[in-house]
Amino acid sequence: MDLPGKGIFRGMALTLQKFFEPKVTVQYPEEQHDGGPKGRGRLILLYDEYGALKCETCFQCAQACPIEIIDMGGVDTKGRYHVHWGPPEQYAERREDSALRRSGRPVPDQSFVAYEAIDTAPLDRILADVDYDPRQMLTILERTQEAYGYLPIAAFRHISSTTGAWYAEVHGIAAALEHLRVEPPGGHVVGICRCPNCTLMGGGRLREALEAELETVIGGTSPDGRVRLVAESCHGESRLRPHLTVDGADQDDTTPAGATSLARRLRGHSRGRAQA
């Protein structure tokens, strides 16, 4: 026969004994245990001693992932194709292409076409003039455009590597400013005035007709690259009709129908929609 309360007193003796024993708490942020050599707690990409990714884009991990949480993309080993594993929507890709990729066949990607090389001698002169100063980026870009007629992608690369400015910075400045263009200029330049006077005279309809026919907007080039549509100023000289020029020559017929036929003539009937 046990005494009443014996179990209670044994338990209380145990807790009192534990009161003086060393504690097991790990003070987490100060004291961190590593996960052990086999720890699989977090997916990480490893880098080699040169700072390059060790991942070879073999997709074995993505293939084995049961919950398809791994989603990876990269360039194949010869630097030609963009390859990825994962839902096609994330890469703005058609499902058919995605299926091709998953089957293992290489599919060319337009965004990875190599850029054309240029002769960098004029660019080097410009850069030497401004002492390779990235703070004078606008001057560099404007003079480069004067020299080449436009800003080639290769020029961005060269400016970036010589001045030390980020590629994205150089490209961003060029893309943000309207008078800098990254594609080669078209054959003809169609200028249209946008002053209030010309607009009142019917410039808006004219612009609409031209933009529809040239399939571009002011400041752009038609898809076949033959005609460029730019904004000009009539300097107050237009008389009772909107101001319209082709390669600097003033045009008389400034009705929308006339502009349409003009644009069609300049493009040489190369539009798909005209035949349709």
Partner: peptide, 13 residues
């Protein structure tokens, strides 16, 4: 504190 120490924890610190 006392309950923590009896539970082999550190308690408020």
């Amino acid at each position: 504190k006392v309950i923590a120490l009896m539970n082999l924890r550190l308690g408020p610190n």
